[in-house]
Computed example of a mutant assay.
Amino acid sequence: MKNKFAFPTGILFDFDGVVVDSFQSHFNAWNQAHIELFSTKIKEFPNEKLSGKSPHIIAQYFCDKAGYSEKGLDFFQLKAKYLHTSTIPPFLLPGVVEIQDFLSENKIPHGISSNATRLFVKNSIQQLNLGFTTFFGLEDYKYPKPHPEAYITLAKHLKIPKENYMNTWVFEDSITGTKSALDAGMIPIGILTMNSEKQMLEAGSQIVFSTLLEAYKYLKNLEL
């Protein structure tokens, strides 16, 4: 793959679908909460409709489907309880350790900004023994993705100057998160966990990789 970028001044990561495959973790928690609250299992999770969305939006979707629109907050909180008490970590995706070690060694500002809860991200990082020390979750912004606040909040914390946003990479697997990165004035880099290359490029990704492992190899070939 021919290099088309200068070395980034900062790298920001989404969490679900980029660092970890957490679908089963989230689905199990949603399902447990659904059984407790509505006495039925969730039949399916519409990824295309809900991928990357705030868990508040996901909770409201299932409550509307169940005929209990007023239960959105209760459902969200119950799902969070099941998610946060799980001792089974999500599945670590390829290249995460390599790229995080590389960025740390080269003192490149980096961190995680997720629409998942902060506690889920924190627990997962600890369970998987990852090296990320800077991470933000749903509670840390007024407006979750697709609003740009999530990535702007992280960039400010990492002390990335606004004039460097145009050379700040954002690894995202969802259309929702890609819009957040674009609207923050950053460079969205697609990870093909959920969507096709065509879908991610059409959404605004400037380049795509199958996993962070391929992205890591690409970065190593760029001049620092």
Rank of each mutant, 00 (worst) to 15 (best):
residue 49 K to A: 10
residue 53 K to R: 13
residue 65 K to D: 12
residue 85 T to R: 06
residue 54 S to L: 00
residue 45 F to G: 04
residue 65 K to G: 01
residue 32 Q to C: 11
residue 78 L to G: 03
residue 71 K to V: 00
residue 60 Q to G: 05
residue 53 K to S: 14
residue 80 A to Q: 15
residue 46 P to S: 05
residue 62 F to K: 11
residue 69 S to Y: 00
residue 85 T to W: 00
residue 84 H to W: 06
residue 28 N to M: 07
residue 28 N to Y: 05
residue 40 T to K: 13
residue 37 L to S: 06
residue 55 P to I: 04
residue 28 N to P: 04
residue 34 H to F: 12
residue 68 Y to A: 07
residue 63 C to D: 10
residue 41 K to G: 08
residue 86 S to M: 04
residue 74 D to M: 09
residue 27 F to N: 09
residue 39 S to E: 15
residue 43 K to A: 12
residue 34 H to T: 03
residue 31 N to M: 02
residue 56 H to K: 15
residue 83 L to I: 02
residue 30 W to N: 04
residue 79 K to H: 07
residue 32 Q to E: 13
residue 71 K to L: 04
residue 65 K to W: 05
residue 78 L to P: 02
residue 69 S to M: 00
residue 49 K to C: 04
residue 54 S to Y: 01
residue 71 K to M: 13
residue 74 D to I: 13
residue 65 K to Y: 10
residue 61 Y to P: 03
residue 47 N to D: 04
residue 73 L to K: 15
residue 51 S to P: 01
residue 58 I to F: 03
residue 39 S to M: 05
residue 74 D to H: 12
residue 77 Q to T: 05
residue 76 F to N: 11
residue 41 K to D: 12
residue 51 S to D: 14
residue 84 H to S: 08
residue 72 G to S: 15
residue 38 F to A: 02
residue 53 K to A: 11
residue 50 L to Y: 04
residue 78 L to S: 10
residue 47 N to W: 12
residue 36 E to N: 07
residue 78 L to R: 15
residue 60 Q to E: 13
residue 37 L to F: 01
residue 32 Q to S: 14
residue 76 F to C: 09
residue 33 A to L: 09
residue 85 T to D: 06
residue 71 K to H: 12
residue 83 L to F: 10
residue 81 K to F: 10
residue 59 A to V: 08
residue 36 E to V: 02
residue 47 N to A: 11
residue 29 A to E: 03
residue 73 L to G: 01
residue 34 H to G: 00
